[in-house]
Design a binder for these strands. Structure first.
Length: 419
DNA sequence: TCTGGGGTCCTAGGACCC
DNA sequence: TCTGGGGTCCTAGGACCC
């Protein structure tokens, strides 16, 4: 059996873990730049606040003090996520961390007389040790565990745990689930399935396999088998290195001058280089892109991007920042109000397998590697911003809005809660 | 006042090889 | 009457996920 455990409105629950007085209040957490709603408490949903709603649509509720608002605090959420995962690792022989707030547990070869009780125990353990309420779905395949988890959240009477074990339980669950709610069926496929009168997960499960294969590709075929109880999706317990890495941010305000945009791009390139070194990779390609504000169609729009190759695949912050600056200068046009910039690195290879160009300056590359090791050691000891490439600047004109961030209670000495 | 930031996988089609 | 039969690699675009 597989279990899917996920944190209820995870970011909101992280905030509540340190401010229990918000337990029964409407609470939302905003995206980066305090842009739109990315997490809502049940009470906030009841007020009609939609997922993804831009904050300016909430102004009335906010001014009347009807909803508590937080900027996102990824240091806090990341840390509570790690703690939640470590509790889960003690509950099951095999754990796959699927996202910041979800994990699959696999009980291979284990027969349990009472899955419902086990689910409750897992729930209580996470709640007791981390303070995060969760929902638990247990079933014979990952996709069915997702279905069970969905039902666990909907049916409060089940105590946030739902077990689908017998064919009767599975069939009745699938009958109650709209086809678009299946994990792996998105908007486009939902539209197609509805057009062919497949309205519930059960309809989809019983559709002719050849038809599914033809219209929804191998992915849909697997999905169907999973819903029929045949496990096709494996547990992925080792984290594979990323094949693309992107760092991008909207600016706190629109920017028309080169300098602050160039500082932002330098910061993003440096972050990409750090992420590459963290996973022991190097990149052969770097892309820089800019966006004007797409929500202001009356302003001139310009959304350029340029990909450059590196002479040798690398992960040095200095090299990547320099190459990103070259790309930025090539696409930069004066006269636009820019809203966002980003850097993507791709063509990723393991650090030890870099194919050097003919006549590469290996002495210099060796020096750069040593320098980056020192830089990373300083960052580890004194914080991410302890040392920077000069091009990153210090004006911070491009920085995010973040007006309502809570304290980094669990990762920062100076922000620890005092009792 | 004023809309986020990441990722993956699959397929079709073009270009190439013998 | 009527034009072979295999392959690989790369990329763009579309679908999906959190």
């Amino acid at each position: 059996m597989y279990a899917l455990v996920d944190g209820n409105c995870f970011y909101v629950s992280c905030e509540r873990a340190f401010q229990p007085c918000l337990e029964t209040r409407p609470v939302v957490v905003l995206s980066n730049n305090d842009g739109c709603v990315v997490s809502r408490s049940e009470e906030a949903k009841a007020l009609g606040i939609e997922m993804g709603a831009p904050i300016h649509q909430l102004k009335e509720l906010v001014s009347k003090g009807k909803v508590h608002i937080f900027s996102s605090n990824y240091a806090l959420y990341g840390d509570l996520s790690r703690r939640m995962m470590s509790v889960l690792r003690r509950q099951a022989p095999m754990v796959e961390v699927y996202s910041i707030d979800e994990a699959f547990l696999h009980f291979e070869g284990i027969s349990c007389p009472d899955w419902q009780a086990l689910g409750q125990e897992i729930r209580m353990e996470v709640l007791r040790q981390v303070g995060i309420p969760t929902g638990v779905g247990i079933a014979p395949t990952k996709t069915l565990a997702k279905v069970a988890n969905h039902l666990a959240k909907k049916q409060k009477a089940w105590g946030s745990v739902c077990v689908l074990e017998t064919p009767e339980q599975i069939e009745s669950a699938l009958r109650s689930l709209p086809v678009g709610k299946i994990w792996g069926i998105g908007r486009q496929h939902e539209k197609l399935l509805l057009k062919h009168h497949l309205r519930t997960a059960l309809d989809f499960t019983e559709a002719p396999a050849a038809w599914v294969r033809q219209h929804l590709s191998i992915v849909g075929a697997r999905l169907q088998l999973e819903l029929q109880g045949q496990a096709c999706l494996k547990m992925e317990t080792i984290i594979a290195p990323k094949k693309n890495i992107c760092t991008s941010r909207s600016f706190g305000q629109m920017l028309s001058d080169f300098k602050p945009v160039s500082e932002a791009v330098a910061n993003h390139a440096h972050r990409c280089a750090c992420k590459l070194r963290e996973q022991g990779s190097a990149a052969a390609l770097i892309t820089v892109f800019l966006n004007t504000n797409r929500f202001r169609p009356e302003l001139p729009q310009y959304n350029p991007s340029l990909t450059l190759s590196l002479l040798n695949a690398g992960n040095s912050s200095l090299d990547l920042v320099a190459r990103a600056q070259t790309a930025l200068r090539a696409i930069w046009r004066q006269g636009y109000a820019y809203k966002k910039a980003g850097v993507i690195v791709s063509g990723i290879v393991p650090e030890q397998e870099i194919q050097l160009s003919f006549g590469a300056d290996t002495g210099r590359l060796e020096k750069q590697r040593a320098l980056m090791q020192t830089l990373d050691a300083l960052r580890a000891r004194y914080g991410h911003d302890a040392i920077a490439v000069a091009t990153q600047g210090s004006s911070k004109a491009w920085h995010l809005r973040q007006e309502r961030r809570s304290q980094r209670y669990s990762t920062c000495w100076s922000e620890m809660m005092e009792v």
